[in-house]
Write a protein that binds this DNA or RNA. Structure first.
Lengths: 230, 230
DNA sequence: ACCTGAACACCGTTCAAGT
DNA sequence: ACCTGAACACCGTTCAAGT
């Protein structure tokens, strides 16, 4: 084994953020503590503070990783709304493997280079659609927020590693809804099964993206812009 | 002073939840601790556990208060989408005075009577629109999530009581965006001002509701239902 | 430069008592 | 029935040392 092969410090920001995300994925964001993370690296809690100023900066790094995983589609000739749909699908594809951590991205998209790349592409498409810069900012913020809402499950649904505990809570929730008065809450009782599914993150993502894009198209200013796209 | 006038225990769940919401409003959800809440009532932390099983049940009570503040419009003769728009506006009106606590409602709408009342009305309108029970559940979940996204500001924007500290952070964020390369992020830089406004919760709520309702209308099944509404 | 160890000021929560 | 007091097992973070 030569000395320069695999030469790297035990700790670096990337490896720390990676393992932090893994912990959040496996056991929930609330179990991700500095002390637990340090223990996972066989190190004192304070060792991590050489690489992150505080815990919030660690969470920033996780959000950055999530945005970096978005495969932003190249600008093409398709209508703006099709390209927007593809971009939203790409964001969802990056976030949905990490439901416990996805919420971190909500207010951090402008705080890292990968996030800015995603935001820039979205705003460009909205400008192409004919929205003013202000409208594009408003709508872009709303759209990213809706996307996070799609992917973020109720706390405690993904966090328990024991599938029995999860299933138990699942059944309990369904039973609670089924026990409601069908006279007072007929639609809630009728939709109980699907509502519980939605609460645990198993949403129809294609429908949700469709709904978002359709909404954006509908509020588009009527005067058609110089750019392409129906 | 007669004995039966104003006779009530120092602590009861309603008063506790009320003051808890006030603390969250004033100084942020992260400063709402059991110990701080107890101190506010001049009582030992454990005294609160006579009225709430744990902190999560306290948060449930706050969410219930928020849903209870929604003035659900009476069913009327207007088209379903107008009634839906009014319902969403009513929810927004109840949540937006409490941006720091609004996020609590996301996954708790089915956990209290006032929340169920709101959910039932929304599902009824979606059924009237012609959606199946499953579709209505999917779409209703998505809509409530988007609403929360409208009202929830970036953490730290409302939490600091000092307006100087808030303004300072505000300026810092705007400056950071303005300092970006206009070649790489032209649209982000152009929208910087509005993006920062949106991040701090000052969204165009009417536009957002319009976008949501328009999206719901667009994904509506084409075969028009027996019920009224264009 | 990178990590340790002890300490500080907090958390939510349990348990056994008090009145 | 309602509240207290002490304690437990945690937090994030500071500071002063170690190598």
């Amino acid at each position: 084994m030569s000395k320069d092969t695999g030469r790297q410090r035990r700790l670096d920001p990337d490896r720390i953020a990676e393992s932090a995300l893994a912990i959040a994925d496996a056991e929930g964001l609330s179990t991700l503590t500095v002390r637990r993370l340090a223990q996972h690296h066989g190190v004192t809690p304070m060792a991590l503070y050489r690489h992150f100023r505080d815990k919030d900066e660690l969470l920033d790094a996780i959000a950055e990783r999530l945005f970096a995983a978005v495969v932003v589609p190249e600008p093409g000739d398709a209508p703006w709304h099709e390209q927007l749909q593809d971009l939203l699908a790409a964001i969802l594809a990056a976030l949905s493997p990490h439901p416990n951590a996805a919420g971190l991205t909500l207010h951090r998209i402008l705080a890292s280079e990968p996030g800015l790349t995603v935001a820039e592409r979205a705003l460009a498409l909205l400008a192409e659609a004919g929205f003013s810069t202000d409208q594009a900012a408003e709508i872009g913020s709303q759209v990213i927020g809706s996307l996070i809402a799609i992917v973020t499950p109720a706390p405690g649904t993904t966090e328990d590693s024991d599938p029995e505990v999860r299933d138990e809570r699942f059944r309990a929730k369904r039973a609670a809804l089924a026990a409601l008065s069908p006279r007072r809450y007929p639609h809630v009782v009728a939709s109980a099964e699907t509502l519980v599914h939605c609460a645990s993150g198993r949403r129809d993502q294609a429908l949700a993206v469709h709904l978002i894009v359709a909404g954006v198209r509908a509020v588009r200013p009527t005067g058609s812009p110089a750019a392409a796209g129906v």
